[in-house]
Amino acid sequence: MAFQSTFTPIELGDLLNLTRAKHDAGYRFAQMLCAMADEGIDLVYSFIKQDDEGTWQLENYVIGGYDPATQTVPSVTGYFLSAFPFENEAHDLFGVKVEGNKIDFAGRFYQVAMDAPMAVISPEQKAAREKAARIAAAKAAKEAKAKAAAAGEAGADAPAQAAAEPKPAAQPAAAPIDPEAERAAFEAKIAGVDPEKADRMRAAFEVKLKKRIEAQKGGE
């Protein structure tokens, strides 16, 4: 028996229709998860069933870029009751607004120190993403250069165009540090820490932040 897992993008509006169709076709609800995207939150719903050829199909449906500030997600617990822990979890850890959950804990499923802790983009993740963006930009620039060099032999117009391309991609890495935004992110991060430790951490953070700003100024 084989196994296959697939990812299909869908719209938020189609969720209930899809769930009904899967329910009627005899699929088993496997899970629902959230993942932070560049903009908003990605929601992934998974269903599993054995198809006629005997292959087990694990079908994941991805709703991209859900915005918790303006949108609500309809609950699928009307079709699959077993979704209730995941929808409560999505609410408590990501701040996803779920409407019509059959067993709704109203934010008391996980009692954590802050709202939506999983939705916080940590400094580590931010740094990693920026680094990846820089590497990607450098790679793109290198490729463009190689292309330009190749094109340069063929025609004279191409190099100017290719050289202009990598510039905007490299810009985000050099964005100025916003001390207020960094401080707010840091405060959110240490919300659960005991006050004594938090004070120490805050002092260390301020020193680091100052250094970073100076380093950037020096760099410019």
Partner: peptide, 15 residues
């Protein structure tokens, strides 16, 4: 009611 052992280790993938 659960949540007594929630540690948040899925977030650790970032670190």
């Amino acid at each position: 009611q659960i949540g007594f052992i929630h540690r948040g280790l899925e977030k650790l993938v970032e670190k």
